[in-house]
Structure formats: C-alpha cells, structure tokens
Design a protein around this nucleic acid. Structure first.
Lengths: 350, 350
DNA sequence: GCGCGCTACTAGAGCGCGCTAGTACGGATA
DNA sequence: TATCCGTACTAGCGCGCTCTAGTAGCGCGC
C-alpha cells in the first residue's frame, strides 16, 4: 500500500455525496444498452421517438449529465476551443463575451484561461492544451512569436489583435492604419497640430498603431510635430506617461492619441487630477472602444474595433483549420472606425 | 456508414498535424512501461532519479503533454475547480485573479466559465460540471437559491458574495453591516444628512447592504432621511437611478451610497455630465473597491472587500468539503473597510 | 542459504463515453 | 419461400490515463 493513497475509496469519493450517475445507470434503469442512451444523447439517428423520450425522462430523473472528460477522450474531436485572455483587459473581456455565441453556433464548447499577474500566459496556455482544446484563440498574446509558432505547429491557433511576421497561425485583427488615420484627421480637423502618441511598447498592436500615427502625421505635413511617448497598455502606463508630460518643461501637446483605452484612461486620470481640462486643454483619444470607454463618465473618443465580427471570424478561422479546409496562416483584417465622444474637442488658444 | 461521419480517420484527425504523442509513445521510446512514465509525471515515488531524468527528456523531445481529459477520467479526483463569474463585473475579475494562486498552492486546476448576456449562469454552470469540476466557486451567482441548493447536493459549492438562507453550500462573504456603517459614519462625519442609497435590487449582497444602510441611518437618528432608490449592480442601473434623481422635483441628496462600484460609476457618469459637481454637490460612495474604483480618474470612495482573503477562504472551503473534513454549510465572513477617495467630501451650503 | 525488506519497475483493469460492426425483426419484393 | 431492405437496437473495443497488486532483483542479517 502506498502511503499517499491509503485506500482507493477514500480518495475516489472525496465527499459522502452519491456517486454521479453514468450512462450505464440510465441504460440499466431502462433495461437497454449503453449505446442506445449514447445515441439519444448525441442526437444521432437510430432510436425511436418513444425511446428517446424514455431515455431523457430516466436521465433527468437520475440526474444524469454527460461527462465531458469521458466524451472528449472517447471522441477524436473534443469540440473544445481554448481561449486565452488577460483578465484585466476590458477589451479582452469584450472579445470573450463575443466569442461565446459563434462558438455555440458552430458546436464548440469554450474553456477560458486567464493570464493574471500570478500566472503567466505560458501556464495559461498549457492549461488550455491540457484540457484538450482542439484549437486556441489567443487574445492579444504577449508571448514570443517563436512560442506562438511552436503552438501553431501543435494545434490550430488563431491570434486576435496582434500582427506576426511569420507564424503558421491565423491572425484576426483590425487595420490600424485607417483607424489611426481617422484619429489624426479628426484631431487635425478640430485644429490640433501638436498631437502626441503614447505608445504601447511592444504590446500586441502597439507597433502598428505607432507606425500608423507617424504616417498619418507625415501625410498632414506634421512630421516635425511627431512626438512619441513610451507607454504600455495599462492604466499605469498612461498614468506614468501623463506624469512625465506634466513634469516635462516642454508645453503639453494639445492632443494625445493613446495606444489603447486603458492607457488613455490612465492619461485622463492624471490630467484631470492635475487640473488639466479635458478636452479644452488636452484632447485624448483611445483605441479599442472597450465597454469601459463608453461610460459617460469616461466618455472617451476612441477607435472602435468590430468586436462581434472579430470574434466571429476568429472562431470560424479556428473551425476552418480544424476541418482542414485550408492551411493555417491566413490574416483577416477588419475595418475599424472612430467614435467621437467627449474627450476630444477643438484646442483653445494659448 | 453513417453520413455524418464518413470516415473515422477524417473526423479523428481534423488537421493534417502529427498526432499528439501519448504516454505510450514516451514509454515505447525508452523501452519502459506506461506505468513508469505515469509515476514520473505524477511525481510519485517509485522511479529512480536517472529514470525520471530520461523520462522527462524523452517527453520533451517528443513534445508530450499529459492529457487532462484522460487524467480526469482515470483519476477519481479531478482536482479541478470550476469558477463561475460575470465577465463584465470588475470585482469578479478581481476575485478570479485572486483565486488562481491559492488554487495552485492546493494543487487544483481552474476552469473558468463566464456568464455573459448570451449565455446565462445555468449554461455556464452546466459547462463547469460537464468539464468535471469537483467543486464550484460561484462569484455572486444570481440563479435561484433552489438551484444553488440542488447544485450543492450534487457537488461541493462555495458561494462568494451572496447570502443564502439555507442551502447546503459554503458561503464566503464580507460583513455588510460594518462596511455600510462606516460609509454612513463617514458621510455623517463630513456633515451629510441627506444620504440616499441606490440599491442593487435582489442582486447578490444587495439586500444586506440595503438593510445595513437603513440600520446605520437609524442609529444616527436619520430614520426620516432614509431614501432608497431602486437600482442594480451595473453602470446602467446607476445611470438610470441618477437620471431619475435629476428628473425628480425633490432636491438631490447631498450624498449617495451605491450598492456596488459599477452602480456608483453609473451615478458618477450621469451626474458629471449633468454638471453636478462631485463631491461638492453630491458625494458618491461605492462598494467593492474593484480595481476600476481606484483609477484616479474615477477615484471612488468605496468599501474595500478583502479580495485576496475571500479568494483564499473560498478555495480552502472547497478543499475542505472535498476532503470531507466537514459538512457543507459554513459561512465565513470577513471584515471590510472604507477607502476614502475623491468622490466624497463635505456638503456645500445651499 | 534462506527469508526479509527495500527499490524499481510492470501487468492489467477500468474511468465514462463514442463508434464500428454487427444482430434481430418486420414488411415489401420477386 | 427466399431475398432484400430499413429500422431499432446491442456488443465490445479503444480513447489516454491512474491505480492496485503484483514481480524481479539486490543487499542484508542470522
């Protein structure tokens, strides 16, 4: 007897609750075979309507629920999609919400795994793979491109909101250029010329937005006004950037385009607190239009990504890879568009 | 041949990727038994250090990862905790973040299931059970007490942040009375007398907070100033309540105590937008101290729940139930405390 | 020299289910 | 009556793993 498991029973039945009923229990109850019960629960042809009725009745009477783990194991296909997201990122939360309906429609079950401070993305992804996800949907993953490529070699992977040079995975994201372009157009149209950009470092989407900002500024003849302030995609990043700008001897820009909404909110926080009037003294524009941006108290001008379609395309891409109808490596891009709210307005004269 | 599955192979191997290696592959590679590989991966005694080394080496060379589904099936204990949360609720997100470390410490794996608009809590819970969760942690569940009791009869359940009269489940929550008491004390101390409460209807925690507000008001001799405005635990709830108060002919209260942070933020939104100065004209206090409340732009005075301890106690409670060391039905309550920030201040004279 | 206990390992059943390849049977066709 | 077909069902293997009950081999004391 091995010390860690003195008695099988003690470990197998943790609480004195009644054992979960299985398919065999239902079959025995009705005096039929397991296979028949299985047919009924899989909604496959081969059982008479009366039998189906009886099976369902007996099952609910016994409290039988199909066991996913066994089902996954027995089926070649698990029909489970693993979703990695960052708990703190409201845009990711929006994506997760939007992924559910399409997944259900295509017959997939979802397993979520959150990257949180105490648990990095590697662990989160391992958990998903371990739970037999057939494919992975990664919301703005920050792990290295090599790691993503390795994952992509093992199973179908769809990356949301991040560009990759060359990984055997599908990519679903928004065009950054038109969005950033619209932001700069909007601000220039309001009369701004000193438009700074707080970037997101190397976070997903950030390099592209930075580049798009630069291009848009140049095309407005504002190349000499390009000002990029290092930041990242968190409130803290925005706060730090704002503090830096306030401490700086140089005058404040009249408008700041942040790399995402959280960063913009961080800017908003520090500026408001410092008595800087928004948008009179400084206009602020974010990116993502996460649900938090629309709150009227925040009321952030931002670039809306088409979250429902992003989510739908991502799930469909995963499904296509799983069905083998095409090779991985597709890149799908959606239009995004400016949503003007209260944090942007014409600059006041100095 | 059944039409839905023309060829087994076609359905079994969705993509032309190489089959996932199994324990048998690792064992064959080394010329040992599967059981030995199993021992090594479970970190059980009975294998020599050299063998362990060789097993790990071969496993990583082949890209072997243990298959959870099979492991869950074979093990009596799955060591999986199912966590239900509401994606949109930042306090729930905080809880999820906090649950991970303790779960890991006690050797549990987590499966998350989000309740989102298109997918109610019943479905989310079924998914958790189907994925073989041994126990359920429910963050502020809104399903009926009967449903929770039924769940509790099937497997260990721990409810966070909601009181229940009589269900065979563990409850981990905060004392509402001292928190609400502190809020009212604080506001009264600042000079407020017209302190309204926007409640959360029947949402988890709301009835208790409402009652605690009433009691606190009474004990300050402000029974005649008690004013309860129907709301709920979303931004929209707070917004509606604020609009109602603004439309009302009666004068605004000088302070509003909201049933949770999201509701408070909704109030903040509408008031700010209507030109009501916060906190000069109206002080606003929330409840939960979710990470969003601390943003300096929101800077909400609120009641902090001890999220890390709540999370730890919840996981420990689930573990205790699973180990059978006690019957379910325990109620654990933690202290919570007021965090004074910028949305509360002395009332101005009228 | 023999049993003893220990370490290092293996055989094989079984977890709950899905799926292929059947069988049994009633009725239509030849 | 023999053949064929379709419907309603069943037998039993196998998914990848865990776990109990072993066995083989080795040094040890008496």
């Amino acid at each position: 007897m091995t010390p860690p498991n003195p008695r099988r029973g003690a470990d197998r039945t943790p609480a004195p609750r009644s054992r979960k009923p299985t398919m065999a229990d239902v079959a025995a109850e009705l005096g039929v075979s397991r296979a028949l019960v299985s047919l009924v629960f899989r909604d496959q042809p081969g059982a008479s309507p009366e039998t189906r009725e009886r099976v369902f009745e007996a099952a609910s009477r016994l409290g039988y629920k199909p066991d996913m783990a066994a089902r996954l194991l027995a089926r070649g296909r698990s029909k489970v999609l693993g979703v990695l997201f960052t708990a703190r990122n409201p845009h990711h939360v929006d994506l997760v919400e939007a992924i559910y309906p399409t997944a259900e429609e295509l017959g997939y079950d979802l397993v979520l795994s959150a990257a949180v401070p105490s648990r990095d993305e590697h662990k989160a992804v391992e958990a998903l793979v371990g739970h037999r996800s057939e494919a992975l949907l990664l919301c703005g993953p920050t792990i290295s491109e090599e790691d993503i490529a390795d994952l992509g070699a093992r199973l179908p992977v769809v990356v949301l909101g991040r560009h990759l040079k060359s990984a055997p995975v599908d990519i679903v994201t928004s065009y950054d250029r038109p969005g950033a372009r619209e932001v700069v157009d909007h601000l220039v149209g309001l009369g701004h010329r000193d438009i700074a950009h707080v970037d997101g470092g190397s976070k997903p989407g950030a390099p592209e937005r930075r580049r798009a900002y630069r291009d848009a500024m140049r095309s407005h003849g504002l190349a000499d006004r390009i000002r990029i302030i290092p930041g990242n995609h968190t409130e803290e990043g925005g706060q730090d950037a704002a503090r830096g700008m306030l401490a700086d001897d140089a005058v404040l820009p009249t408008a700041v385009f942040a790399s995402n909404d959280q960063c913009a909110i961080g800017l908003l926080d520090v500026f408001t607190r410092a008595g800087v009037k928004i948008p009179e003294q400084v206009s602020i524009v974010g990116y993502d239009d996460s649900h938090i941006a629309g709150l009227s108290h925040i009321d952030l001008t931002t670039v809306r990504q088409d979250v429902p379609r992003l989510a739908r395309l991502a799930v469909e891409a995963a499904d296509e890879q799983l069905r083998g109808v095409r090779e991985p490596g597709a890149t799908l891009k959606l239009e995004s568009k400016l949503v003007v709210r209260g944090t942007s307005g014409p600059p006041t004269q100095r």
